[in-house]
Design a protein around this nucleic acid. Structure first.
Ligand SMILES: [Zn+2]
Ligand SMILES: [Zn+2]
Ligand SMILES: [Zn+2]
Ligand SMILES: [Zn+2]
Length: 491
DNA sequence: CCCAACGTGTTA
DNA sequence: TAACACGTTGGG
């Protein structure tokens, strides 16, 4: 209770969906594992996770999040400059989980590593100084459990086989961090409380867990290799204290790619036994394939007929750009890496300019005449699974699982905000050849102003009128509307 | 208040 | 380790 700085000290903020990305706007697929688990779809509803196809690509901090230093919420909206925005925004450290305003940090300009994969996410200067990486952080396993990530793998076709990894270990031999204020804040996560369940239980409670107190904690161990940064890359350009921006993820999220590539792109084995090397992926293959299948269906509908965007050239990146500036041969155009870097550099950050940057975006489903999918309150008639929930065992359950933190793409925006997050995962296109489109800028979405009708003409009411109407609807009703047609959904 | 879900503990 | 479960947080 006191104001202990401990990382997670009283602040166990869970991230929540942004509700803006495509995934968030979609409705349940009804076919994935989690959907099947939902009571809505006849499942027991025990998992309480969200549909795999609805996993948010840019989870945000809850509104209740506040700076551990000043106790205030994010105020980036109150200022103009990007730097100001940054300093007043809340940033959550992926290592210690502390949420602070960069501007409230005492160590003004240490090297903070901004994670542009997720909104308001970085590795705070404090942790960086200690040379911690996620691996050593509280959970020892470095990242989120493969669980969420794996199940919630987002479809991205990015990642390179090998090579790449441009800059690995920081050129800096590792500055002997002076222990000046080494306040070993062992904040980490707190175990919270343990639950105990009364011996009395008239219901089939499934698992029995409270065996007294059996929570054991893993002692902090020190792996041999102290500094072997994880796979993320970080640009250490800490000249005089700058922030670093790291991008690129190399987390467990490539499986799908592999599967896709293996099963679809390559002839591989006709019968499809399995690969000799794949052994533990077996179970996952199923899931992945399932997901892939769904995606394919989706894509079929989509069929993206948009004009091709010309932006799939430069692949080989010979990088070697030690210090920005010379943008070798970057295509000259708006958000080129160089531009990003410069922008960030202007703020005192360095940007990661991988060969991969821009995220490509999905095309959104095409409007088709029928919306057969029911999604929400359709199946809830006499269906009453015996499920015995604890608190909420109603009839609706939507679980989801993707946790965020990393695994998302990195993109730096260039508009009013310094980073552009509402990006979307890339759909595994049945076609081989991963191509990427530029992220669709959030500000100006080319949504139609009119509502096309089946008759061919447009509805008399225009978008703004509809929107005015929509604002009086409840969320639930809006969801229903969104299922009516694509245009409404987009609006 | 109700419902959706995040993140972690537990079990297989 | 992956899958399952669930308490509890978060949003409306
Ligand atoms: Zn689903
Ligand atoms: Zn989202
Ligand atoms: Zn603050
Ligand atoms: Zn930290």
């Amino acid at each position: 209770m006191s104001s202990s700085k401990g990382a997670g000290a009283g602040a166990r903020r869970r991230r929540t969906r942004c509700r803006k990305c495509k995934a968030c706007l979609r409705s349940e697929c009804g076919e994935c594992h989690f959907c099947k688990d939902m009571k809505k779809f006849g499942g027991p509803g025990r998992m309480k996770q969200s549909c795999l196809q609805r996993q948010c690509t840019a989870p945000v901090l809850p509104h209740t999040a506040v700076c551990l230093v000043c106790g205030e919420a994010g105020k980036e909206d109150t200022v103009e400059g990007e730097e100001e925005k940054f300093n007043l925004s809340l940033m959550e450290c992926t290592i210690c989980n502390e949420i602070v305003h960069p501007g409230c940090l005492k160590m003004g300009r240490a090297e903070g590593v901004i994670n542009n994969e997720i909104p308001n996410c970085w590795e705070c200067p404090k942790c960086k100084r200690e040379g911690k990486s996620m691996k050593d952080s509280g959970d020892g396993t470095g990242k989120r459990r493969s669980d969420n990530g794996e199940e919630g793998v987002r479809w991205k076709l990015t990642d390179e086989p090998a090579q790449n990894k441009k800059k690995l270990a920081p050129p800096t031999p590792l500055p002997q961090l002076s222990a000046e204020e080494s306040q070993v804040q062992a904040g980490i996560h707190k175990r919270k409380k343990e639950k105990e369940l009364p011996p009395l239980d008239t219901g089939p409670k499934k698992k029995l867990k409270g065996t007294r107190e059996k929570h054991l904690k893993k002692a902090s161990d020190q792996p041999p290799d102290g500094n072997k940064l994880q796979s993320m890359q970080t640009w250490s350009r800490t000249g005089s204290g700058d922030f670093e921006v790291k991008g690129t993820i190399s987390h467990p999220s490539i499986h799908l790619n592999q599967i896709t590539a293996s099963d679809l792109e390559k002839p591989k084995v006709p019968s499809g036994p399995l690969e000799p090397s794949a052994q533990s992926d077996k179970s996952h293959q199923r899931e992945k394939l399932e997901r892939f299948k769904q995606m394919c269906q989706m894509l079929e509908r989509v069929k993206n007929s948009s004009s091709s965007s010309s932006s799939s050239d430069s692949d080989s990146d010979t990088d070697s750009r030690g210090s920005d500036g010379s943008s070798g041969g970057v295509s000259s155009r708006a958000a080129s890496p160089a531009t990003r870097s410069q922008r960030l550099a202007a703020l005192g950050f360095s940007a990661s300019e991988e060969e991969e940057e821009e995220e490509e975006e999905e095309e959104e489903e095409e409007e088709e005449g029928g919306r057969r999918n029911g999604g929400s309150e359709t199946a809830r008639n006499g269906k009453q699974p015996k499920a015995r929930g604890n608190s909420q065992e109603k009839e609706n359950n939507h679980p989801a699982r993707l946790q965020c933190r990393q695994g998302l793409r990195d993109v730096v925006a260039h508009g009013t905000q310094f980073l552009n997050w509402p990006l979307v995962p890339s759909p595994p296109k049945p076609l081989l050849q991963l191509e990427r489109h530029v992220v669709r800028p959030p500000p100006d979405s080319p949504e139609p102003d009119s509502l096309p009708l089946d008759s061919g003409s447009d509805h008399i009411m225009q978008r703004d009128v509809w929107l005015a109407v929509f604002q009086y609807l409840s969320y639930r009703e809006l969801c229903v509307c969104m299922r009516v047609c694509r245009t409404w959904s987009r609006w």
